[in-house]
């Protein structure tokens, strides 16, 4: 029971991170029908940008207020990662829009290779550790000498995630941007004829997705305290799994899927085998796609003849 509770807490934390990344996948897929393979690496880049920013604030500027550091880092990472993602869309995907279906996918794979190797070259191949930023924990309950703890950083992750998701939800539900996005999802040509700036809408979709991935990146950095240039691929695939599990194209689905994947992964590690935790995640992806291709909250696809 205690172990389960502890894993629940850990799983939800991890799941928040996956959910934030998954939104980027799901939004881009919804609007241009493409799996943005580079998104995982955008997440990794954002963690590095966060790392540089934290180092700059602490070692150079000598700041000590953790909350200020985190807040500034979040904003900086979101802005720069958004810029990176915007540039990627502009350079590697937009020229291929409306052409051959595989072309943007290959381009995205190329982008993913480019990004991770760029970071490797620019920042070196070794793990980059940070001293623990928010080390405190508080004990939720204790029984038979087993303490169920909730770290402050976990609370931060959940609160930040929830706040940003609420803001994001407002953005896509209540603003004209959200309306433009939905219009583009339905029919891009028609939306353009009705005066929606399709290019801008798609660009903003990439920027927003990247900004949320940047939040995930900074949270990841704070949570694990270490980042490596190769850290984009596996979280990326897991977040994609989350998007698919929740129903690709569905925003609440992405968050739900993220939480589920996070939970499954931690529970699997705790109760079965830690070696096979990635196998579990991939297997869930396969099983979902085979038995529930529309995902938990997605709309089923009808084949029109």
């Amino acid at each position: 029971m205690e172990v389960f509770l502890q894993q629940l807490i850990n799983g939800l934390t991890l799941g928040s991170i996956y959910g934030l990344i998954a939104i980027g996948y799901t939004m881009v897929f919804g609007i241009i029908g493409m799996v943005n393979f580079a998104h995982g690496d955008v997440f990794m880049v954002s963690a590095f940008i966060g790392l540089i920013c934290v180092l700059l604030l602490t070692t150079v500027l000598g700041m000590s207020s953790i909350f200020l550091i985190l807040a500034i880092t979040l904003v900086v990472a979101m802005v720069f990662t958004g810029l990176v993602s915007w540039a990627i869309e502009r350079v590697a995907y937009r020229p291929l829009r409306g052409s051959f279906r595989l072309a943007p996918m290959i381009s995205a794979i190329g982008m993913s290779i480019l990004l991770s190797n760029f970071v490797q070259v620019a920042q070196g191949p070794r793990n980059k550790p940070l001293p623990p930023m928010v080390p405190d924990v508080f004990v939720v309950m204790e029984r038979n000498g087993y303490e169920v703890t909730l770290a402050y950083k976990q609370i931060i992750i959940m609160v930040v995630t929830a706040t940003l998701l609420a803001g994001f939800w407002w953005l896509v539900q209540k603003t004209s941007l959200g309306r433009a996005q939905r219009a583009c999802e339905q029919d891009r040509k028609m939306a353009a004829l009705l005066g929606v700036n399709v290019d801008l809408t798609i660009s903003l979709t990439f920027v927003i997705g990247a900004a949320l991935a940047a939040v995930a990146g900074v949270m990841y950095l704070m949570y694990y305290g270490v980042v490596n240039f190769a850290d984009g691929f596996v979280p990326g695939v897991k977040a994609f799994t989350a998007a698919v599990l929740g129903g690709i194209g569905s925003l609440p689905g992405a968050v739900l899927g993220g939480l589920l994947i996070g939970l499954i992964e931690t529970l699997w590690s705790a109760y079965f085998s830690i070696e096979y935790k990635d196998v579990a995640a991939f297997s869930i992806l396969v099983v979902t796609l085979i038995f529930l291709p529309q995902g938990l909250l997605g709309r089923p696809e009808v084949e029109k003849v």
């Binding site: 350079v91 590697a92 020229p95 291929l96 072309a103 943007p104 290959i106 381009s107 794979i109 190329g110 982008m111 993913s112 290779i113 480019l114 990004l115 190797n117 760029f118 490797q120 070259v121």
Partner: peptide, 15 residues
């Protein structure tokens, strides 16, 4: 730089 250039080439060729 090999893989960096490789990734770049993949994008460039597709475009």
């Amino acid at each position: 730089y090999r893989m960096l250039i490789f990734g770049f080439a993949m994008v460039a060729v597709m475009v």
